[in-house]
Design a protein around this nucleic acid. Structure first.
Lengths: 132, 132
DNA sequence: TTCCTTGCAAATCGTTTGCATAATG
DNA sequence: CATTATGCAAACGATTTGCAAGGAA
């Protein structure tokens, strides 16, 4: 299943790489559409799935019912704000160690690791403080 | 919103506590139905959501498109087999440390942490070895 | 009697898919 | 040409929800 070039896929990929947040398929669609008005949602979904399967991007299931996508495929974890829903990167130095440790202690073969933190982001904390 | 007793919820909760795997809503439904034939899928979903919101059980979004539920609400991580789809507990001693560390270094307020490992479980590895 | 729960069925909604057509190699 | 990709719209499937009736406090 060789992959042929397509302008749509390129735009989708470029858009994802240009963002440090983690857009949903629909956000990708709305944005790419501005540069390529005829693109369809189905095409966006197809390409996101394709890219994720090939390991060129990462699919995040943070638990809000919608898939998020991340152009950064390195091992890092995410923070999900229960208030505003934002998904941000979170640097944890011990992640690599945990991955190695898990691989050593586990009977099967571990290929991937995903870590999510949940809570209230600093922006939302500030908002609430001001309000009350 | 005080919670009133219901036989259905009790059965759902008991079933979940009796399992070490992490059943989906439908699996819970199919099992509870044997003891309580009139229960509806909607009721199962409503109670699983209710219990999860109250923190009495945990909702797992492992990435297979279906929610799984865990009666064990302690901090632990899970392994998801990409082959057979099984979801099992995975003990990692450093989890608590990582949680503490994240809380210290992060600007917002971290309340929860979820870690998933993906790969091939030992059972599936064995199967493949025998096959080839 | 008040309010929570239920069963049922319809509605939601993110995502996938079938198909005829267009673009790539 | 052969194959992969697209747009469109319909299909899917897990989960949620409205409603009238039942059960708990």
């Amino acid at each position: 299943m060789a992959m042929k070039y397509s302008r749509q896929r390129q735009l989708i990929y470029n858009f994802l790489m240009s963002r440090k947040d983690h857009p949903t398929a629909d956000v990708v669609y709305q944005n790419v559409r501005q540069e390529f008005p005829n693109i369809s949602l189905g095409t966006v979904y197809r390409n996101l799935t394709l890219l994720a399967d090939r390991g060129e991007i990462q699919r995040l299931q943070v638990g809000d019912g919608v898939d998020h996508f991340d152009g950064d495929t390195s091992l890092h974890c995410h923070f999900v704000c229960s208030d505003c829903g934002s998904v941000t990167d979170l640097q944890m130095d011990c992640l690599d160690d945990m991955f190695k440790m898990a691989r050593q202690n586990f009977g099967g073969k571990i290929e991937k690791q995903m870590t999510y933190f949940y809570g209230i982001c600093s922006e939302c904390l500030d908002k609430h403080t001001v309000k009350s």
